[in-house]
């Protein structure tokens, strides 16, 4: 939760309170955390202050330029989606195409397949990612043997820090016909002969989800564990007096206590449902499962850059952003309605 609030909280000019330690020596000179004073003393005051703050200006100027170039020019590049963009001529000498590229997009069957794959893997990842993290956190929270608890947690988020390239390699190795999973399945008689999981289109979503769960469960559990640490111990004492077993304590105390965290994270993740990226799909996919691995970003990459259809690729990007904003607004409104507080 802290991470989420950080963003909103750190908005400039947000009224800030407390911190009696930091009363400025000279009021109104450099109150780092104090309330922003209404600074409207006219132009003269403005330029006077600016000349005093030359160093600050020079320190931020290069990065403002950087922000504009690397973050805002690409947004301005959205205009390409409404042109027939050709890289040879400048951005102002392009032919306008209106909504042609969007129409092309919506008439393209491949696009719907990409959308289906994106949402499919997004929803699977959301459901199993959330469930696995909550279950793991609940269980870990109950472990009394502290050494085991510490080691399990430390080891559990190791995969979070390694790249998807490495994880893809691990997954492919484990699932290969000679890999451990096949060995186990054949030895226990579940399978007659080794199955090449990576070559089963119908299993691809599942493989991606499993890889995701393997990589992120420990990491995602951290935030739930933090929330569980804040539960009032008296609640457990009272339950113990009433004779509640530890299963029941888990179900009736721990789980309801972290409900707000679960809901906020769910909402944030639903907003990102369409932004699942393409790394996993690109690295784990192959020609045989390509049909199930094509997600929106890969589609944009293939068409936009691979086939030099820049305008078309940009249109895909815009579509994605619009869906993402709509999802966030819906979830935010929903959260407000059920009284869990808005996320933004």
């Amino acid at each position: 939760m802290s991470r989420i609030n950080n963003a909103a909280e750190s908005q400039p000019n947000l009224p800030e309170s407390n911190s009696p330690l930091q009363t400025p020596v000279k009021p109104g000179f450099s109150s780092r955390k104090g309330k922003k004073r209404a600074p409207k003393p006219g132009n003269k005051g403005f330029f006077q202050r600016l000349s005093k703050q030359k160093a600050l200006f020079l320190m931020s100027f290069p990065f403002v330029i950087w922000l504009i170039i690397f973050k805002y020019i690409p947004v301005a590049g959205w205009v390409m989606a409404f042109q027939d963009y050709k890289p040879q001529s400048g951005i102002f000498d392009q032919e306008w195409a209106g909504l042609k590229h969007f129409k092309d997009l919506f008439n393209e069957p491949m696009f719907y397949r990409a959308l289906e794959n994106t949402l499919g893997m997004g929803i699977l990842g959301l459901v199993f990612g959330t469930l696995s993290a909550i279950v793991f956190a609940l269980l870990l929270n109950e472990v009394r043997f502290l050494t085991l608890k510490k080691w399990t947690q430390t080891i559990s988020y190791l995969p979070h820090f390694v790249s998807w390239v490495i994880v893809a390699n691990i997954v492919i190795t484990m699932l290969s016909p000679e890999g451990i999973i096949n060995n186990l399945l054949v030895d226990t008689g579940i399978l007659d002969k080794p199955l090449n999981f990576m070559a089963q289109p119908d299993m691809f979503w599942g493989v991606v989800t499993a890889a995701d769960v393997w990589k992120e469960t420990g990491w995602n559990a951290i935030i739930y564990l933090a929330a569980m640490a804040g539960v009032d111990p008296q609640l457990y004492e009272a339950a113990k007096v009433d004779g509640a077993s530890r299963w029941r304590q888990m179900w009736h105390i721990t789980l309801p206590s972290i409900r707000p965290v679960i809901i906020v994270l769910l909402i944030l993740n639903i907003g990102n449902l369409i932004n699942i990226g393409f790394e996993k799909q690109m690295l784990l996919g192959n020609n045989i499962v390509a049909e199930k691995a094509l997600v929106i970003d890969l589609y944009a990459l293939d068409y936009g850059i691979g086939m030099f259809r820049y305008s078309f690729g940009t249109a895909i990007g815009i579509f994605k952003s619009v869906i993402s904003v709509i999802l966030i607004l819906i979830c935010n409104g929903f959260a407000k309605r059920i009284g869990e507080g808005r996320v933004f």
Partner: peptide, 21 residues
């Protein structure tokens, strides 16, 4: 400056415009 920075957390040009840049 703060606004310019924080906005980048919510908007992004996307793959293709970034590539062109």
């Amino acid at each position: 400056v703060g606004l310019l920075l924080v906005l980048t957390m919510f908007i992004s040009g996307g793959l293709i415009p970034e590539y062109m840049l």
